[in-house]
């Protein structure tokens, strides 16, 4: 859902947009030509989800989400996340720069709504509609070719627990034809330690775990724990955490990739435990 902070938006079609949130980075890079992007976050510029976005990001200016940068740069609109500092929001408002907040989009309906709304605010309705149409077509194709039995898959965060239902991860997993047999209906994450994970009955078909950004950081080491390797063998698949963090139309492509790697893993022998 997109919220417009106050009715202070003077320009109906903002010319230059600054993003101070990693997920907003991806969305405005998808929706806007480079000359209309004032800056994106240094994190968003570094961690590019697709090669196309990476190429686009290279030419852009980076910001550290600092209030001073926003005030000196004077963009026509700031797109922020829920956790953007109040200082930046207050001062930007005082300086007459409108701030638009993006809530995390945790499923495809939310992605659709948020993309269209942001497209409208940026005056890029056509571009937003075509991104959404492409996403919907991909999702329909995934549904049409879904495996007859959902693949039982668990996203293990390493040490702490499994990814729950109310998450973008679960939306992507479901679209890919997977099914999480343990996640609670409304939990973001359910605690499950290594012993409990190993004792799950029946044992899930594949184990998914997050890997870090390229050159960046992975989760806790025990996603590579020898006991897991012994129990799941090659049916341990890593997914790129950064790609599962932001609800953009690209999430459908992640579902396609996940479907492919899960199906490949299903063709491998199941190690399992007696």
């Amino acid at each position: 859902m997109a919220l417009l902070a106050g009715a202070a938006i003077a320009a109906p079609k903002p010319m230059r947009v600054m993003s101070v949130n990693q997920c907003a980075d991806q969305l405005i890079m998808l929706l806007l030509p480079p000359d209309r992007i004032a800056s994106v976050t240094y994190l968003g510029r570094r961690a590019a989800v697709t090669p196309a976005l990476a190429a686009k990001a290279r030419g852009l200016k980076a910001n550290q989400g600092l209030t001073e940068q926003a005030l000196t740069d004077r963009p026509d609109l700031i797109v922020a996340g829920l956790y953007t500092t109040t200082t930046l929001r207050t001062l930007a408002k005082r300086a007459g720069i409108p701030v638009m907040e993006l809530e995390p989009a945790e499923d495809f309906d939310a992605i659709r709504a948020q993309t269209l709304r942001l497209g409208e605010a940026l005056g890029q309705q056509a571009r937003a509609r075509s991104l959404v149409a492409r996403m919907d077509a991909t999702l329909a194709e995934l549904k049409r070719t879904a495996p007859p039995q959902p693949i039982k898959a668990i996203g293990w965060t390493g040490g702490r627990g499994v990814v729950g239902r109310r998450s973008l991860f679960d939306a992507i997993l479901t679209a890919a034809g997977g099914y999480n047999p343990v996640a609670d209906q409304d939990a973001f994450e359910r605690t499950l330690d290594l012993e409990q994970l190993l004792s799950l009955k029946p044992q899930p078909d594949v184990l998914l775990y997050a890997s870090g950004e390229p050159g960046g950081l992975a989760g806790p080491d025990n996603t590579r724990h020898p006991a897991l390797v012994r129990a799941y063998g090659p049916r341990r698949l890593s997914y790129r955490q950064d790609a599962y963090q932001c609800g953009t139309p690209l999430a459908a492509d992640e579902a396609v990739a996940l479907r492919r790697s899960m199906l490949a893993a299903m063709r491998l022998p199941k190690v399992g435990l007696p």
């Binding site: 012993e195 190993l198 006991a227 012994r230 129990a231």
Partner: peptide, 30 residues
Amino acid sequence: VGSVWMSPRDILHGLTTPGPDLASLIVLDL
């Protein structure tokens, strides 16, 4: 003691039979 309860008999059984099973995996590897 662990988050998954296994009786001493399960453990003994797991350790004395060859091949991986849950008890030997949890006791030997964890």
